[in-house]
Design a protein around this nucleic acid. Sequence first.
RNA 1: GCGCGCUUAGCUCAGUGGUAGAGCAUUUCCUUCACACGGAAGGGGUCGCAGGUUCAAAUCCUGCAGCGCGCACCA
Length: 887
Amino acid sequence: MPEISKAYEPQSVEDRWYQHWQSQGCFRADASSPKPAFSIVIPPPNVTGMLTLGHVLNNTIQDILARRARMQGFEVLWLPGTDHAGIATQTVVEKTLKKQGLIKHRNDLGREKFLEKVWEWKEKHGGIIIQQLKKLGASCDWSRERFTMDDDYSRAVTSVFVDLYRKGLIYRGKRMVNWCPASQTALSDEEVEMKEQQGLLYYFKVEIVEEPGTFLTIATTRPETIPGDTAVAVNPKDPRYAKHIGKHVLRPLPCEYSAEQKRIPIVGDDQVDFEFGTGVLKVTPAHDRADFDIGQRHGLAVVEVINADGGMNALAGRDLATLDRFAARKAAAELLRNLGVMEKEEPYKNNVGFSQRADVPIEPRLSEQWFLKYPSLQKARDVVAKGEMRFYPDRWAKVYDHWLENIQDWCISRQLWWGHQIPVWYRKEGDRQEIHCDVAPPAGGGWTQDPDVLDTWFSSWLWAYETMDAATRRKFYPTTVLVTGPDIIFFWVARMIFAGFEYQGAPPFKNVYFTGIIRDKQGRKMSKSLGNSPDPLEIIAEYGADALRFGVMRSAPLGQDILFDEQNVALGRNFANKLWNACRFRQMQGGEVEGEISGRRLASEDKWILLKLNSALIELDRALGEYHFSQAAQTLYRFFWSEYCDWYVEASKAVFFGSDPARKEHTLAVIDFVLSHTLRMFHPFMPFITEELWHAMGYNQDLPEGQGGKTIMTAPWPKPFDQDFLDHYGLDDCYLENVDAQFHLVTEGRNLRSAANIPANKKAKFICKPAQGFSPHEAEVLKILLNAETFEINPDYQPAKGVVTASTPIAELFMSLEGLVDLDAERERLTKEREKILVEIQKVKDKLANPSFTQKAPAAVLAEHEKRLAEWQTKLQQTEAALQALG
RNA sequence: GCGCGCUUAGCUCAGUGGUAGAGCAUUUCCUUCACACGGAAGGGGUCGCAGGUUCAAAUCCUGCAGCGCGCACCA
């Protein structure tokens, strides 16, 4: 066993082991393995993206599940890959080319040349995030890495399109869609984010043609669309206006129009809310969804005044044409004021749809797009509603169900170049258009392919199975669990479920675990513009990947957002260092031991730590089984730091500083047992340091190659002890209580020292008056833990002057001060103590004096209260005696 | 507007009916031979508010308030 360094240095360890694991094929999944399957597909990150803390959280969880499953004897497939991320990637590449001055617009290059550039970009940046995941320790089967634009995968995407087209579920139609003027493409409803905006509500009046001198006042937030108004609508049930239905008004804009051109009808429509504004609605069918519907009902003209890029066109009139839509709003308001028709403008908060990607207001726009009527809807809904597929936390099931209940057809076409081009070709034959939809282009000349590409999610919804070949699918589909963020529950999770049912006849996963969203310390979302998103790689360089993993997991409560604080990573690093040094301590006490643990030789604190280990194992399995990762991390932390290091290791010094070699040998055997379990329990959370220590401690040495001999990755996952084991080693729960009580006595004794201002480096003399008695070994342990010069057991001790006292249920403890005591301070301490005790006694007495409590409370609770009362009363007596003794 | 979640120590959070917990921060002491990325001992909470159920409520029920999120065509 080589000496190990004083502090753990992750940098020298992590890369070495990662390479070792890869070269040994530890991450490979074997589809022909007889072992039971455990599988996860990675939520594919954007191919040109960089690792964020969100990825760290998400992939650490997946890695924990994968590594634990391997240790449990499952054949594990964790399938990695990346996503082409249509809009994001195309935008980045186009911007870069513009910045380099190579183009003004992608049209300058043309589709093919531009796509070549995107592929170049992908080749250059596409591997970065994969390398970053490796730094984190992700145990993905990299031999199966996939990309949504791989040839095979692309073929699958188009053939699914063709299939759904033939089933009549995909259709083309002219509809109002969410148009992003920045990216100049249609978006799905899910890509629109409602944001509250502080704007103005403009009130302007229009004259009724048939009744000169009578005016209607209209409230609007968008005066720039007035030139596109083709009607004014009122509610037919509104007594104020019903009489005007069928008459006309003169729209004020464009100014230069003749009265005839300005004339628009007043229509009656139930849609109009007469509570709102003035109860008169201007109808702009070309630029508002609701208005479009009204227009359809009344046969209104659709006049487009805003272009695809968000600028106003000629139909908006000479004053507004060429202006941007926001400038046009101001200009239109100014025109209304100049015309003298503006009645008032009031501040107004309303919700405006924003393009999630480009962060600009969406422009509802009539255009020809491809839509999908979702397949396998009912099955997808039922599988979650019936609990056959479980969501964690399960409240997301409700969100999912609600979305499915109100689901709309999916707009799947995008006016982009980067992506899967729609497999549809058109040919004009005289007046009518021929359409050909197939995976292969049509024969014959004159055909042109639809220029649009498919929404990226239309490719990633096949991810759960299309990334697998037939043999892999047989073994690993449906996957065991999906780990992802709740922000893509509709975008991805729901759609994968549809695709799974439609094309595999089975849902794509058995469980879905939704992580929280990582925020900064102030609770703000991580964003590039705020600059509040730390680079995980820098954190790894400073603290180590294990520290980052453990820190994040320890602070990631189930289903809640996670406030990221670098302090948590420091905690992870400190923990790794503690683990390291605990192993170092073991090494310093001696070499390898041959002997096994013997039930006969186990001291009470040995049994105590083994029982604590067992509890930790039980808690850990339960926590991980329910995806309670932070609870699992806390169990590990508490067991190892508070129970093992703080108490057991300190107690073991009674043996190591003693002179009984057989006893030392046996204690080392206990320590090896506990540490070898601990390393395995920790491995899924902190893979690198545990592997390093596994070898440094020699725990791999006597194990078969596939059972931990080669790597801790294949060491068996520790199981809670069975009854035979507990019986064989005499591990009775009474040792938990017993040793806890002894440790409590130690705390009381240390408190005496502290209260008497005895510095930690000075030894003190203790006399102990036990209720039952201690074994010589236990007395030795107590002596060490109290840092005592002497620890005398004397059942008949009568305290002398200059002695301070603490009392516990198992013993009274006296500490000799040899005249150095500050009597007043001690009296004050004991008086405070006495008051505390009296309060507690009163609380318990009150309860016991209540007849309905004694009659109705369960016997165990009652007994527990009585015991508590007795203990407090003993303590009171002893404290009062101590006060008396002070004089 | 509808739905969901949260509210516990200065901060971040555990805690599903029976003596209020952890980490960080804070105070005091200690560089003692695993670890100062450490050790020891403290201080600090009427568990958001108001009702109700119960022998007993942080925990169950009802209402309210504040914060956050999702859904929603009120211009």
